[in-house]
Each structure stands twice: as structure tokens, then as C-alpha cells.
């Protein structure tokens, strides 16, 4: 974990209710995993909110060429309800933002992975380009991105992914049987649906088969494992989302308890 100053460069609307933010770090950052996060101070001195977790990903053109100083972040309209992120939406270009990170544990892809399935709740926004760095450089990897979306997927989004990446909006039984690794990004109901469908077709999914990002986990107030207030229930007892997560094994998280919270 290191302090970093992010300069906000621009935000571009990439779907009707979704924006891509570009930031440049004051120094190139060594590799970190998608799903690890940076805590950023939002608000001005009169309205300082708790630092917000930002799930940064290297910009497409630099993905894989670590160290990287140019990062992207996608947020959707629903993030405007958060005061800290709403502040980010209103930032003028060149605004400097103090942050520190990377924090937590992100997605990891075993070297042996051949078939990767990536279910993403499109409306959540933040997953859209987050995990691209895991597969854009591995041409030998078979990748299917399965977006769940209420609206048709914008063509501009589809064009952003390399040709070897299959993009779909349906998650068929075949597709659930095919992968040897799954990384998913969505909310708790999305994961509950995914888990139910997976266990319907795979009687005993291998441990670690599906990794999920607890995108809605309260990675605060401290975000570093000091306060103990972000514990989430897992099969092995409670774990701190900001330290052991926010990426967890789908099989070990107690989604029912999380859904009730």
C-alpha cells in the first residue's frame, strides 16, 4: 500500500447511464490485481467524506504493460446516490485526488486456466472494464463475457473488447459447464442467481472455481483491516472484506446472511 495522487483527466459517457473516468497517477504503479482497490479522499475540506474505494483498472492501451500510470474506472448512475462518488462525478478535469492502495485481495487467474467465463451485472457499471487486464494479454485463453443487462448492450462497449473475447447476454447451461474459471462482478442477488444456476448444473463445483467481487461490501470506515467493522460471513468464519476480500470464493461466502444484512 502506498499513497498516490490521482489526477482526474476526463469522464466519457459509454452507455446511457454509465461513465468511464480516466485518471493519471503521479507515479507509475506496480502491478495489482483487478478487484483490489484504492481508498480515495473525496469532498472538499468543508465536506470531507470517508474515503471511497475505487476499483481502478489500467486503461486499455496500457493494459499488461506494468508499471502503469493511466487508469480507468466505470461508474453507473446508481453510484450518484453515494455522496462521495457523486462528488467524483462533479470533479472538474485536472482535479487532484489523494488516495492510497492497492488494498485487499483481487481476482487471480491460475496459469492453467483455459476457459474463462466472466458474468457481469452490466447495470452495476464498475465491472465493465475492470477485469480486462486479466485476459487481454493471454491470447490462448478462451473468454466469454456474459453481461446481464435489462437493456441492449451498446455496440461501443462490445467493440472495446479484443476479437478473441466472446460476448453474450445469455448464460446457458452449456456456458456454465464449459469454464475452468469464473470471475463474476455484480450484487448479492446476482451472485445468488449465479450460485443457484451453477449448482444446478455442477453438483459439486470445485473450490475456487468461481471468484466474485463483493462490489457492495462496505469497505469502510478504515478499509485497511484496522476497525473490524467490515466482517462478512464465510464457511470458515467471518472474514474482513477489506483484507481477505473484496474478492471471495463464491462457494464459501454465506450469501443468505449477506442478503439479509
Amino acid at each position: 500500500m502506498k499513497p498516490v495522487t490521482l489526477t482526474f483527466i476526463e469522464k466519457t459517457r459509454i452507455a446511457p447511464a454509465m461513465w468511464q473516468f480516466i485518471f493519471v497517477a503521479d507515479k507509475p504503479l506496480p502491478p495489482f490485481q483487478p478487484g483490489q482497490f484504492f481508498l480515495a479522499r473525496t469532498g472538499n475540506m468543508f465536506s470531507a467524506y470517508l474515503p471511497r474505494p475505487l476499483f481502478l483498472a489500467p486503461c486499455d492501451e496500457v493494459a499488461g504493460n506494468w508499471p502503469v500510470s493511466r487508469f480507468q474506472l466505470t461508474l453507473s448512475a446508481r453510484h450518484l446516490a453515494d455522496r462521495g462518488l457523486a462528488w467524483l462525478f462533479s470533479c472538474p478535469p485536472a482535479r487532484k485526488i489523494d488516495a492510497f492502495g492497492p488494498l485487499g485481495c483481487g481476482f487471480t487467474l491460475p496459469a492453467t486456466t483455459k476457459n474463462l467465463l466472466v458474468p457481469i451485472d452490466f447495470e452495476l457499471g464498475m465491472g465493465v472494464f475492470l477485469v480486462g487486464s486479466l485476459f487481454t494479454m493471454r491470447k490462448s485463453l478462451n473468454v466469454t463475457l456474459a453481461f446481464e443487462s435489462k437493456n441492449p448492450l451498446p455496440a461501443a462497449i462490445v467493440r472495446r473488447f479484443p476479437p478473441h473475447v466472446e460476448i453474450t447476454t445469455t448464460l446457458t447451461t452449456d456456458r456454465l459447464l464449459w469454464p475452468d474459471a469464473i470471475i463474476a462482478i455484480g450484487g448479492i442477488p446476482f451472485y445468488q442467481r449465479l450460485k443457484a444456476r451453477l449448482s444446478a448444473v455442477r453438483l459439486r463445483p470445485a473450490p475456487g472455481l468461481a471468484q466474485i467481487l463483493l462490489a457492495d461490501a462496505p469497505l469502510r470506515p478504515c478499509g485497511v483491516g484496522a476497525c473490524g467493522l467490515c466482517a462478512v460471513p464465510t464457511a470458515a468464519g467471518s472474514r474482513l472484506a477489506c483484507l481477505a476480500g473484496p474478492v471471495f470464493d463464491l462457494a464459501t461466502l454465506d450469501l443468505e446472511v449477506l442478503a439479509d444484512d
Partner: peptide, 9 residues
Amino acid sequence: DSVFWANPQ
């Protein structure tokens, strides 16, 4: 106390 959360720097 809360300064750790608001601004560790």
C-alpha cells in the same frame, strides 16, 4: 480516532 478513517496521512 476518526482521523485514521478520514485521512491517515
